[in-house]
């Protein structure tokens, strides 16, 4: 009776992690928006003020945590969208690998932004 199998078995992990990352994001994003926009309402954000804040490890943890979780959630979501486009499911492995590479690069790139505040200078400068 079984004519052919549609799709590849699996897919529970990406689905679950999308939801787990969403729960983390809910907390982290609201904290991030609060910190950047409302905590010192009206006071200008400067290099010095950010540096002073990042002295407390908790802020660095929020920023780095948010970076990792948001990149995972966003790109994993993009993967869902891409895999729904007709004909792309056959490329699912290539898409997954490509997005992982993009994600790791993005996280390193993003971490570099905070490096000057924590260690005085960025890890790398592209110029």
């Amino acid at each position: 009776m079984r004519q052919r199998q549609y799709g590849t078995t699996g897919g529970a992990w990406p689905w679950l992690l999308q939801r787990v990352s969403a729960v983390f994001l809910l907390v982290l994003i609201l904290l991030h928006l609060w910190i950047e926009h409302f905590m010192h309402l009206g006071a200008p954000i400067t290099f010095a003020s950010v540096k002073a804040r990042l002295v407390h490890a908790v802020f660095a943890v929020i920023d780095y945590g948010l970076l990792i979780v948001v990149v995972f959630h966003g790109l994993n979501g993009l993967r869902t969208v891409l895999l729904e486009i007709p004909f792309l499911p056959h490329r699912s492995r290539a898409i997954t690998i490509g997005l992982w590479v993009l994600g790791v690069v993005t996280v390193i790139f993003g971490m570099d932004i905070l490096a000057p505040f924590l260690w005085g200078r960025p890890w790398f400068v592209l110029k």
């Binding site: 199998q5 549609y6 799709g7 590849t8 078995t9 699996g10 897919g11 529970a12 990406p14 689905w15 895999l83 729904e84 499911p89 699912s92």
Partner: peptide, 13 residues
């Protein structure tokens, strides 16, 4: 059934 249900084209879609 898990082969087709726990599948990228199954419940997760």
């Amino acid at each position: 059934r898990a082969r087709t249900l726990n599948n990228q084209e199954g419940v997760w879609k």
